[in-house]
């Protein structure tokens, strides 16, 4: 049997080695940028006392969803402080925020291009399938090789895992825009760029926001895995709970992830629903 083995693993290893040697400065640059961004953001989040943050997040919840969500949200966030996970939660929040920003910056342009070109769409789809179904732990290995241990490979793996729904829903949203309305844009002499800005993106916004919401949720689900490669935050806590079979710590850290996830989900969903088109659909 051995002579029939196809050495895909060896090829990929060689490819990664080659990439690492050739693009070392690029990876170093990306690493520096991401580390700097993470440190800035996490120190900002940890700098302010917990009650300031809780208050801010509570007010944000109140503004986008109403006072009841604001109060319940603030109370739930307070619980994180009282199980002594506040600092870890803020590190996780910083990590997730940066991953989501990067994923969004990557996803929306690709989604737009895929919506405009069948060829791109057909090429992108299997890649997205691959990214979503490959067990996410596997990304961690080349990520560590390329970016070394720490917060960066965790972020990169998170981005890879979380970006597909952002691309898919951006493409879907733009494709779903009424073809006649787009045609009207062309018929009155608009440029493709103006049609994108004034017709397609506004009308696709609800779907795109649903995609961003998915990106956030998937990012949070990757937090623990990021802990494997040395990313700080709640993931680290869960890992050490596993290694010590510490049920209590595991539950406390896990609960904190859940609270963060639900809070972010509700806030971003509400932001999507507040767009002009979504309001229209509600009144219809």
């Amino acid at each position: 049997m051995d002579e029939w083995r196809i050495p895909i693993g060896v090829w990929v290893e060689d490819a990664i080695d080659w990439v690492q040697d050739t693009f070392q400065p690029v990876f170093a640059f990306i690493r520096d940028v991401l580390i700097a961004a993470y440190e800035q953001l996490s120190s900002l989040l940890e700098l302010s006392p917990f009650w300031v943050m809780v208050l801010l997040l509570g007010v944000l919840g109140w503004l986008v969803r109403g006072w009841r969500f604001g109060v319940v949200g603030a109370a739930a966030l307070l619980l994180i402080q009282f199980v002594d996970q506040w600092e870890n939660a803020m590190q996780t929040l910083a990590l997730v925020t940066i991953a989501v920003v990067v994923a969004t910056i990557v996803a929306i342009p690709i989604g737009i291009v895929a919506a405009r070109s069948r060829i791109v769409s057909n090429a992108v789809r299997p890649v997205l399938d691959f990214m979503q179904t490959m067990p996410p732990l596997v990304y961690l290995i080349p990520a560590v090789v390329l970016f070394r241990v720490g917060v960066v490979p965790g972020m990169i793996a998170t981005v890879i895992f979380a970006v597909p729904p952002g691309i898919r829903l951006t493409e879907l949203g733009i494709r779903q825009v009424d073809a006649e309305v787009v045609e009207a844009g062309h018929a009155f002499g608009s440029t493709p760029g103006s049609i994108l800005r004034n017709i397609q993106l506004p009308l696709a916004l609800v779907t795109i926001m649903a995609g961003i919401n998915q990106v956030i949720m998937l990012s949070l689900s990757m937090v623990v895995l990021a802990g494997f490669v040395g990313a700080p935050g709640l993931g680290q806590q869960v890992l050490s709970a596993i290694s010590r079979l510490d049920v209590g710590l595991g539950v406390e850290a896990g609960l904190s992830v859940v609270i963060l996830a639900i809070y972010l989900d509700r806030v971003t969903a509400a932001l999507g629903a507040r767009s002009a088109v979504a309001r229209l659909e509600q009144t219809a």
Partner: peptide, 21 residues
Amino acid sequence: LRTLRRDQMSMVFQHFALLPH
């Protein structure tokens, strides 16, 4: 072509094709 459409011809559509927002 865009200039021509803008300055010389307009169009009315079957399903109105208005911007809902």
